[in-house]
Amino acid sequence: MKELIAFFSRYSKWLVLLVYAVISLVLLFRSDPYRHHLWLTSANTVSGAFYKVSHNITAYFSLRQVNEDLNARNAVLEAEVVNLREQLNTMRLAGFTDTMPTPDSVSHFNFIVANVINNSIHHPQNYITVDRGSLDGVEPEMGVIDHSGVVGTVSAVGPHFSRVISLLNPNFRLSCKIKGSDNFGSLVWDGRDPSEAILEELPRHTVYSPGDTVITSGYSAVFPSGLPVGTILDDGRDHKENFFTLRIKLFADFSRLSNVQIVTDNFRDEIKIVETNTIVNSDPTKK
């Protein structure tokens, strides 16, 4: 027993090093960001409060840019309203209003407006902290967009703050298609340029040209379909593979994110129930 204690006291620094190193390595290589404990993310109360204070100070410096973005966005929406109003009038004149069912897409998705209080773009796995939490209705796996395109999905939610997995994180994959075609692929960041990402697994027969717009496919309850993501940069046609892999220039400027919207799907629970039921019913062994 005495020798054992002597052994431990002699090698105690190696033991301490080993214990701390093992804890760190476990945290470092446990990669699923949805399973991070809230207190180990930037969305916890203490670091959230720090970021909120610093955001309150620094937000003023980007007000001019934010204003310009909002004006530009406003102009686009204004034009869309005019177009839709015109279409509505044409249809009303044609006498369709009584017989046509009104689409309920307006009530399908809602948005929670949030401020980005912390953001990184230089790590291999980047995260964003926003100042809205479960008290504001945020839940894990909700989509996050800004005025120009897709930003990420929510991974950890505290009462007042949430952590978002940025699009600039290889753990985040987004189902996308090229505008005007129905073939979809998977968008993922390759860890190089914060303004570019890779669209992979696009079927070989897809017709496209550089400059085409890439939009969300809507094949998940996270993002509505048709949200802008980016444009095709180059003709990376690889004729050996069965799938295309393309470089995409992202619309969202991650170096100066300020205001974002968290997408809440009103039919999320219903879709989940339907999907799980379908799997159970289509299982031929269960009868």
Partner: peptide, 24 residues
Amino acid sequence: AMTIGFLLGMAVDIMSDTPGLNAL
């Protein structure tokens, strides 16, 4: 020294979402 170092790295890790990296 190592305990202080570990806690220091952990605090930075939590705030910048790099779990384990700076702690190690």
